[in-house]
Simulated scan of single mutants.
Amino acid sequence: METPLREPTFLILTALAGEPMHGYGLIAEVARLSDGRISLRPGTLYGALDRLVDASLVAVEREEIVDGRLRRHYRLTEPGGEVLAVETERMRRNVEAATARLRATMPSPRLSGGLA
């Protein structure tokens, strides 16, 4: 899996870091994590999940039939957690560098703490 991760992929892995989830739960959690900026469509989500399963970053935890339809619950794998941790650290360093530059050039109350 390439890094940096695309934001939807990052958010899918982040959502699964909490607990296994099924597709609809993932769509809702990604929307929540992104404050509504990312709205995954089912086709996009399942395409991403297929790629993540193929890359061994996500695995199917269990399957069940609900209202006559198959529902798969996905979980983050150990390699998926490692990729998420590396990407999170990369992003943290980038935020820290940008925050330091902004503080040096444009002191603002919006940059006083909590950002990095």
Rank of each mutant, 00 (worst) to 15 (best):
E82H: 12
A104Q: 11
T3F: 06
D67P: 03
G81T: 12
S108P: 08
L57T: 11
E82C: 01
A104P: 02
L49K: 04
R32W: 03
D54A: 15
I65Y: 11
D35T: 01
S56C: 08
P4S: 11
L45P: 00
L11R: 06
I38R: 10
A17N: 12
R103E: 12
L33S: 06
R51V: 08
P79C: 15
M91A: 13
S56K: 11
D35R: 09
V86P: 00
G25F: 00
S108N: 15
R103S: 11
L111P: 07
V53G: 08
L76T: 09
M106L: 13
A28K: 15
T3V: 13
L49M: 13
L111R: 01
I27R: 01
G113Y: 06
Y24E: 13
I27N: 03
E87F: 03
D54N: 15
E96P: 02
V86C: 11
P20T: 04
P4H: 07
E7D: 10
D35W: 06
A48Y: 06
A100K: 06
L11W: 04
L16K: 00
R37C: 07
G68M: 06
S39P: 00
G23C: 02
L16R: 01
A55F: 05
R69I: 05
P109C: 04
V53W: 02
A59C: 09
T44C: 06
